[in-house]
Structures are given as structure tokens and as C-alpha cells.
Design a protein around this nucleic acid. Sequence first.
DNA 1: GCTGGCACTCTCATGGTCCGAGTGCCAATC
DNA 2: GATTGGCACTCGGACCATGAGAGTGCCAGC
Lengths: 343, 343
Amino acid sequence: MSEERRLQVLRAIVQDYVDTSEPVGSKALLDRHHLGVSAATIRNDMAALEEDGLIAAPHTSAGRVPTDAGYRVFVDKLAAIKPMSQAERRAIGQFLDGAVDLDDVVDRTVRLLSTLTRQVAIVQYPSLTRSSVRHIELVPVAADRVLVVLITTTGRVEQRIVASPVDLLGPAGEGLLARVRAEVGAVATGALLADAARGLSALPARLADGDEARLTGVVAAALADALVEEREERVVIAGTSHLARHGGEFTTSLGPVLEALEEHVVLLKLLGTASEQGSLAVHIGHENPHAGLHSTSMVAAGYGSGSDLVAGLGVVGPTRMDYPTTMAAVRAVATYVSRILDR
Amino acid sequence: MSEERRLQVLRAIVQDYVDTSEPVGSKALLDRHHLGVSAATIRNDMAALEEDGLIAAPHTSAGRVPTDAGYRVFVDKLAAIKPMSQAERRAIGQFLDGAVDLDDVVDRTVRLLSTLTRQVAIVQYPSLTRSSVRHIELVPVAADRVLVVLITTTGRVEQRIVASPVDLLGPAGEGLLARVRAEVGAVATGALLADAARGLSALPARLADGDEARLTGVVAAALADALVEEREERVVIAGTSHLARHGGEFTTSLGPVLEALEEHVVLLKLLGTASEQGSLAVHIGHENPHAGLHSTSMVAAGYGSGSDLVAGLGVVGPTRMDYPTTMAAVRAVATYVSRILDR
DNA sequence: GCTGGCACTCTCATGGTCCGAGTGCCAATC
DNA sequence: GATTGGCACTCGGACCATGAGAGTGCCAGC
């Protein structure tokens, strides 16, 4: 019994099951694939695959269905990622090119990925960690309130309003604010976010006493706070209605899946698993940490500006999904959105 | 047959049906409500209510179920909004108080509303239309690129990068940028957004020729563009998993509902129907414009800073929802989030 | 206008039967 | 030793009939 053919049989089972969403029997396999052997042989192979835990029969006399482990083998050894057509690639690029700002890029990306794969799409906001401080602005909004604005090289803007211990609208206010800005700017501007946060936290200790020092202190604290706030933990989701298309296909109902999709922390962890740009991470069924996702699979990719990987994106669908096509779409979108961010 | 009692019967039917989610018969009504009349009388009343189109029987011999029109009457004439307990109000306030910025306020609001009502919650981002320009900042990011930042009184920040026709890193760059900023600032700062957009669009025509005028022109154009961009069209949704709890309760399956929830334009229109602060708009079943929402109801409220209504929030659930409680929760959250925005 | 009574209707749950798809195994064959 | 054809067996799902129960509509009487 050749190992080789057994894997061919597994591949055929996965493909047929994805197509028909019905357990596939030995006879049906013969009709749709020309494997050159008889049904009885297929049955023997199937028995061996079942022994190995790669397929399972829902009940005694029905066809076989791939298990999570079966999909795993399929994805790792048997599936060639189906390349996208020239037209598709062009459409992706054009759609993303129309974005006007970062929010729009993320928004378009998630919608695109969802319609492309006809599945739930998830896109993480680009992370701050590898970017640096581009600019810091202080704006007085009242006598005792100053708006602190932080702009990073990825184009993200953070804002905080802090109470000022000094009257800012008085005659000295303008110059005072300029000096404070210069002070914090000297420490932070151009530095990586983590470094800037450290520098700003250390700043107050180095200052003399006085009103100006106190103002510098609160501003520095607000900035440091904004810097460490894990803003990249935001994700955007689209296409949940695609879940309904698979009806009762989930062993459990839709509820737990929708719940899991609201647990952004879990999603972020999964999205983060695609370690290198261009590579894909696939989490199948029970490999997922969250019980709500036990009947779903996730295909994730990293994306980012330049060589830095700043965030992840991916799709979630039933374990019975068309992996080659889905993986191709996720990879293509990750590539294009990275390109956009490079601008 | 007293008109009065007929409405009592309708109210009882709605309440029982919301409780049990099963068609309610004349007998069951007698057990749970002491209406002081016999089952036969109830039956007569029911027949009249059915005649009026306020209730319907799913099939010949089952109890009655309220129709959309029946719910409408219930909401308009029969339901008293159930006040929230002191503890609940305090919990709402405390939860929202912890927010650090606008995104966080919206995020917390939607999650709160969803858990409170155990339904899908929708929150619209505060609109720009009634706010004004607080500050404009220009930051050179390369010799020929300038980052234009617009800050509004609601704390929203818009950003655009524009190409500069002038070398900004040269010796004259700094002063040039300051003059341009003063120019656009004079037109826009403090003005209502719509007015600022008009003023900025008109600005280039009033300028002399030259590099500085050209730079002012592109900056003003970018700002005007940012101002008119309908940024308040963003909505955030949470709690879709609550939909699954109602299982097959929707006449149609979950799919169309989830689809409708992705059509933000539709949601925005519905959210916008609560005209005055403190008032609630309720859209029941087929009153909704989108077919996907025909088996759901939406309860919406406006919220805003001060006396200005800047955005809407609400929940979507099955038509068979507990209107008094839901309406109380929506109103309470709208009130508290308005208070937070006032800070 | 309200009430009790009664015949009627329709859904739903139960249980039995049948059919077919698909398996597992075995003896024969290459 | 792997492959094949054949065959008995199993099990789930569709189909049908039946009965119970809930609820109605209507009518005659108060």
C-alpha cells in the first residue's frame, strides 16, 4: 500500500469535501478523480487514513470527512497555493490605491479581503512599535488645558488633554509652551517609540523646580502614556454575514464564533503568528486557542511598511474552506497593503 | 367590548410573548394576568385585535403573536419606559468615565450598550458638523512633503499629506510654512467646520501669484477636503453574538441581518432618526428600510456634547424584544455619553 | 356584552418501516 | 504482498400514520 497514493486519496477527499460539503465515499472518489485503482483499494487506504487520524466517518455508514489533522497535512504537504490572475492582482491594487488615509487603508483592506475570500476578514491596525516619533505639538485649549498631539512616522496620531499648572493664556504662555515643546521634542523626536517613552519618563527627574518644569513633567507623562498605550491592539472585522452562508456547518452554532470574533485579544494573538512577511500562518480547528473557533480555521499573514512587520491580517472561515485559494488571496492582499504603506 | 380592555389584552400578549417567546393563547393569558373576564371574552377581544392587524396567529390553532403594528401600538401607547436602578446608573457612569480618548469613549459605549441590553449595539462616531476648528498644524516631513493636521473642538484629528511646490527644508522653509499656517489659520480657526471649508475653498482665488500662494493653495485644498469628508459616517458595532441567542427566531436566518449590519449607510440613516436629545426612535420590523432588518427592531437615541446633537447610538434586536427595558438602557447610555463628551 | 360549552382544526411528537449509501471483510487474482 | 470483486451488514434519513394537546370559533343562554 503505497504511502504516495494514500496522500493522493487524502487530497482528493479534502477537495471533494470542500466542493460538495458532504462526506465523501469511496465510490464518489472514483468518479471525480482518476486514481487508477478500484474502490476496494480506496477503502483500504481510507481505513489506513482513519487509523492515522486524518479522516473520520461521522457515523458508521457514511463517507469520510477530513479531521483537523487531515487538513493540516493537506495544507502543509499537499496544497499548492493557487496563484491569482493578473486581473485579480490589478483589481486589488487599484482598490487599495484609492485610500486617502490610514483609517481608509485599513477599512478598504478588510472589505476587500472579505469579498475576495467570501469569508470573515480581520485586519489589525499597523503597530507603532517599530515606528518613531515624527512630531509633537502642544496646543492651548483653555487657560489651564493643553492638548498634546503626537504624530508618528506611520502617520498615526495620538492625542491627550492635560491640565496645566500654569496659566497658558497669559502673556508668558506662548513662549512657555514653545520652550516645553522644544524640551520634549529634543528627547523624543526621531526616536523609536519605545526609546522615546523611556526618555520622556526619565525627563522630569532631570529638571529643576518651577512652573515650567511642572508643565514639562505632565506633558512628558501624557506623551509617555500615549506611547506605551498598545494602540496597535485595534482590529477591524468585516464579512461576518459570510458565516451564515455555511449554515449549520459549524459543529456548534454561530454564537460562539461571533463571540470569539469579539475577543480581539485572541484574534491579535493569532494574527501575530505569521512571523515573516510573505509567509502565511494557518490555524486549523482545534489548534485555535479559543473554543469558539474550534470549528473554524484562520489564515493569517503579516504586513508592514518596508522590511518591518507591523501588523497582521487574515480571514476566518469554516475548517472546510478552500485553503489554496484563500491563502493566495490573503497573501496577495498582505503584499499590496504593505506596498501602499510604503508610500 | 371596551376599547380599553382590548389594549390591556394587547399589552398582556406582548409581555407574555416577550417572556416566553411562544404564541400566547387565551387560557395562558388568564393564568398570568388577572383581567377579570373569562377566556371566551379574551377570545373575542383577540379576534378584534386580529381584525385590526395588531396580532396574528402563526397557524390556525396556535396562540397569537403581536404583529409589527401591534408592537408599534405597544411602544407608542402602552409601554412605560422602565427606569434604571441607581446602581445601574452608577455602573454606567463609572464604566464610561474610565475612557482616555474619543476612540475609547466610543469603544466603551458600544460594549456597554451591548452587554446592558444583551443585544447588538451600534454607536456612531461624533459628527463634525456642529463643531469648529480648534487648530491647524503644518509639519514638513520631507523637502517636498508637508503633513497637514486639523484638530477640531470635538477632539477629532484629521491628517493629510500634500506635495509642496516649494523646497521646505531650505533656509526659507521654516518662515514660509509659518506664514502659510497663519494664513489658513486666520480663515479657519474658530470657525464652524462648514464655514471653514467654504472659507478655505475660496482662499486661493484671493491670493497673489508665487510659490507661497501655490503652497497655501494646496494646503487649503487639503484642509477643505478633510473638512467635508463625512467622517462622522463611521459606526462601531458590538455584540453580534447576541443575535445567535435568538436562534431561529428570525423569520429569515442570521445572514441577512449580519449583511444589513455591514451596510453602515443604512444604519446611519436609522440612527439619525432620533431628532431630539432625550427622545428615542423605535423602528419595528418592516418599518425598517433594509429587508435584512425586517425581523428586527432598532431603538435609537441621539447624543451629543452640550445642546448639539452630534451623533446617534442604538441597539438592534429581534422585534420580540423587551422594549421598556431596552429603551431605558439606550436612553441612559445616551445621556451618560453626552455628559462625558461635555468634559 | 359576557360566559360556558362543544366541535373542529392544526401542529408536533412518537414510532415503525423502508431504502440506499457506504462500509468491512474475505477469498480470489495479479 | 498488494489489489480486486463480491457480499452481507449497518445505520441514518425520509416517509407515513397515529394520537394527544392546545387553542380556536361559534352558539345559545344569561
